[in-house]
Design a protein around this nucleic acid. Structure first.
Lengths: 260, 260
DNA sequence: TATCAAGTATCGCATAGCGATAAAAGTATG
DNA sequence: CATACTTTTATCGCTATGCGATACTTGATA
């Protein structure tokens, strides 16, 4: 198959534009979009014209900046609603949260970041504000590490090339070598921890969720305030809970351990 | 401006395909997509190839059917997360739900249907299963009627042409004439009711939410079991609550009544 | 085994989409 | 208010991109 003649460049560009705007915290101008997408202004003009016409974008009359339109909202809601992963995982997450009385999360990997798919929050106050759709760096989050650990070597190598390490706390891993060792530990134990690496006062433990083919597609974690949960309890009791939850979800998704 | 030369047909087709699949309850084959989209198989082959390559679609190895991919999930989550309407409305919905102890919803109009944007559910059991992203016909729902009532004549006329009326209950409105009279009543009173028109045992009252320009962009409703709430209470006490909630959201979105 | 349908692959073609550019509009400054 | 600069809007020649028709392969069924 002549693959280059099957790839529609203009569709790809349109999707990139929509994705860029969906991750932007403020409306963007035509010139800024052209800059971020490395496209000519006239190309972006046509892309935005098309998406405006279709209702995926809207435009502020005064500032001329673009933001997402109603059809994008409808699309986003439909996508999230029909997500099998989220539907399957929700009852399991809820069960675990009720059993242990802690916040339980589900996330997927996008590039070098995790994206939160679902959150079951307890009433405890945590000191970072997260919601469904929030993104965090993978390297200093338990779910991120659980996802990175089971990537194919080649893909992991590519992501390493893109990673920049930032010292959030004195515990944050700051080099590829340190992260590699950590990921080996994750593979050995089957779960990943975050010991105040993203934020002081926050610990978590995560386990990988597998689909029917055995591929790790998501991660579940249990997040706790450090003041209440010691690292030892995290790595034993709560790790077991995270693993059980991930296994239940994986089973519902069709994963069978014997088959791998 | 030469608008036809600015509209990118292939981008439009790709968005339509993605939208179709996001609203489908099961995976779709290449042939079925071509049928639904009225495109040639080879065009759909290229569209799907592109979206597969970008990660927006995935494909089952055995059935060859397409379903949404991980990047679609990321996109959907980002869109929903950054929705101003939802962020603005949530605290107001929550406040009202706490005050009256009933289920409160927010929805937008897409074609002849409403799409649920947010739901604050109480513990009471209701006999239809709805979630964020769910769609219902506009003509027999209070939020649908609140949205239809304030559409421009031309747009409303176009939607009337697309509507098919189905007798969900003995109360369901079954003709354009009846719906037109109902929408006049909505405009007169400023709110819309659903008196067991969609489902026996269910009543609701809805009020329109306006953006800064005064355009009705969403609707809020309060949904109750018929057994507990008489129509008279719905049209007085709860209608006032719905209107107040909608007004608070509208105000936060920048709508100023004096300006219109 | 023959038939039919779905999926995959090819290719000629013309117009769809591109980018360079010009014109218009908006903003900032002295 | 004039000028300079930036952004947005509009135009147009050009070519390669995307199209659809079609052929080929694969899979299912009677």
């Amino acid at each position: 198959m002549e693959t280059t003649r099957h790839f529609i460049e203009s569709l790809s560009r349109g999707m990139n534009l929509l994705s860029t705007l969906s991750e932007s915290f403020q409306p963007l101008s035509l010139t800024e979009l052209a800059r971020q997408l490395s496209l000519s202004k006239s190309t972006v003009q046509r892309l935005t014209y098309t998406l405006l016409r279709l209702g995926y974008l809207d435009r502020d009359k005064e500032t001329k900046k673009f933001h997402l339109g109603q059809r994008a909202m409808v699309l986003g809601l439909s996508i999230v609603r029909h997500s099998d992963l989220r539907k399957v995982a929700f009852p399991h997450l809820e069960k675990t949260s009720k059993e242990i009385g802690e916040t339980v999360n589900l996330a997927i990997l996008d590039g070098t970041e995790i994206v939160y798919v679902e959150r079951i929050k307890t009433q405890q106050i945590l000191n970072i504000n997260l919601e469904v759709g929030s993104r965090l760096p993978a390297y200093c989050t338990s779910m991120g590490k659980a996802l990175l650990a089971f990537l194919p070597e080649k893909q992991l190598g590519e992501l390493f090339r893109k990673m920049t390490f930032k010292p959030y706390t004195s515990n944050t891993l700051l080099s590829k070598e340190a992260l590699k060792r950590e990921l080996e530990e994750v593979r050995r134990r089957g779960f990943a921890t975050n010991n105040e690496e993203l934020s002081n006062g926050l610990r978590s433990v995560a386990a990988p969720v597998r689909d029917a083919s055995g591929k790790v597609i998501a991660a579940v974690n249990i997040a706790v305030p450090s003041s209440r949960v010691q690292l030892k309890r995290l790595e034993t009791v709560l790790a077991r809970k995270a693993l059980e939850t991930a296994d239940r979800i994986s089973f519902t998704l069709g994963y069978r351990k014997e088959a791998s």
